Each structure stands twice: as structure tokens, then as C-alpha cells.
Computed example of a mutant assay.
Amino acid sequence: MNWMRSLLLALALLLAAPVAALSPNEILDDPVLEQRARDISAGLRCLVCQNQSIDDSDADLARDLRVIVRERLVAGDTDEQVRQYLVDRYGEYVLLNPRLGGHTLLLWVAAPALLAAGLGGLWVMSRRRSSTDGGGLSPQEQAALDDLMAEPGDEGRS
């Protein structure tokens, strides 16, 4: 009975294995066009899954976008024309890597600027710490500290 459960579990796991998002009827006959379509699809965001390329997504919209990419390539569009067509239709969010422009400048500059500011802050803190640690106590400060640390009744023993 246990072997039957194990066999059923193994069969269920095999059937639940992930399938490739690209269906065979989407693949173009021309291998050069198909490779171009795959290269373009790898850089386009699935608008349903949001953090997957349309090449990796099983969503219906991703399938529709893959078909549009292939149709545009067969029609003779360049790779950039296909991308621009999809950006015009769905917005720049469809691109996995945003373009460098005035409206995305903050995205591209913020991380390096914050890193530089953090490193600069650490450098300033280390410089301040090293300048205050090197002096030690003056003889007058040491005498005052000794007076404070002395136990009551020890004043006459020095």
C-alpha cells in the first residue's frame, strides 16, 4: 500500500513539473527570426507577472505579446521598431530594463549616489574617530580622573 502511495506521489510530481512558456505553434520557421524574437522577448516584461520576461511567463497576455513580436518581425520590423511598437502600445513599463532618459534619470543615479554618500559618511566618521583617539589624557585630565576614581577615605594615602 505504501509503494502505491509513493508511485502516485511521484506521478503527481511529474505531472506538476513546470512547462516551457513558449508553445510550439509560436515558434517561427526561420531560425534567425526566431532567435531575434527570443532576444526581444527576454527584454520585455510580462505585465501580468510583472517581474518575469514574456519569454518565461505562461500568462495569456505574455503569449499575446510573444505573438505580436513574431508578427512584427515577419512583417520586416527591426528589433528596435518592435520594442518601440510595444512601448507605444503598453508604455515603457513593458521594458525590463528602463531606458536612460530625463524621466528615469533618478532610477539610474540614485543608487550610485546613495552608495557614494554612504561611503563618504563612513570615511568622514573614521577620520574624526582617528583624530580624537590619538591624544590620550593630558596630565591634568589624568589627575582629575584619579581624584574622581579614588575611594572615599583614600585622599590621605597618596
Score class of each variant (00 low, 15 high):
A12L: 14
G121F: 07
R99Q: 14
L8A: 15
I27L: 10
D56H: 03
R157G: 08
V82L: 02
N97M: 11
E26C: 03
R89L: 13
D60S: 00
D60H: 03
N25C: 06
L107S: 10
L105N: 10
R63Y: 04
Y85V: 07
A116L: 14
R157D: 14
L96Q: 15
A20L: 12
L15K: 07
R83H: 03
I54G: 00
Q140M: 04
V74P: 01
A116R: 08
A150V: 00
P139I: 05
V19C: 09
E26W: 02
E71K: 11
A150Q: 14
A110M: 07
L119V: 13
P98R: 12
D55C: 00
R99D: 11
E26R: 05
G121M: 07
S131M: 03
L61I: 04
R99N: 06
D55P: 00
P31M: 09
L47H: 08
V124F: 05
L7A: 14
S158Y: 15
V109T: 13
D58R: 09
V19G: 09
A144T: 02
N51A: 09
R45S: 13
G101I: 00
L33Y: 01
S158Q: 14
T132K: 14
A150I: 00
D39I: 04
A12W: 06
R83M: 07
L47W: 01
M1T: 10
M1V: 06
R66H: 08
D77V: 01
L96C: 12
S130Q: 15
L9R: 15
N97Q: 15
R63L: 06
G135P: 01
V124E: 11
R99Y: 03
V124W: 10
A75N: 10
A110L: 12
A111D: 07
A117C: 08
G134D: 06
V87N: 03
D55S: 09
S23V: 12
A110F: 08
S53K: 08
E80Q: 13
L22D: 03
S53H: 04
I27S: 06
N25V: 06
L8F: 10
D55I: 05
G135W: 10
R99S: 11
V94G: 05
A117T: 13
A75G: 02
Y85S: 12
R129M: 05
D147L: 09
P31H: 09
S131I: 00
G136Q: 08
R45H: 01
D29W: 04
G101H: 07
S6W: 06
D30N: 15
Q50D: 15
L122A: 11
E155R: 07
A116M: 06
L86A: 05
Y93N: 13
A143P: 01
A117K: 03
L137H: 09
D39P: 00
D154G: 05
L73I: 04
E141D: 12
V32S: 08
L7R: 15
D88K: 01
T78C: 05
L107K: 07
L13H: 01
R129L: 12
R157Q: 12
A143Q: 11
D64M: 08
R38W: 02
Q142K: 08
R129T: 13
R66D: 03
D79R: 02
C46Q: 05
G91A: 05
R127Y: 02
G136E: 03
V87K: 05
L28S: 08
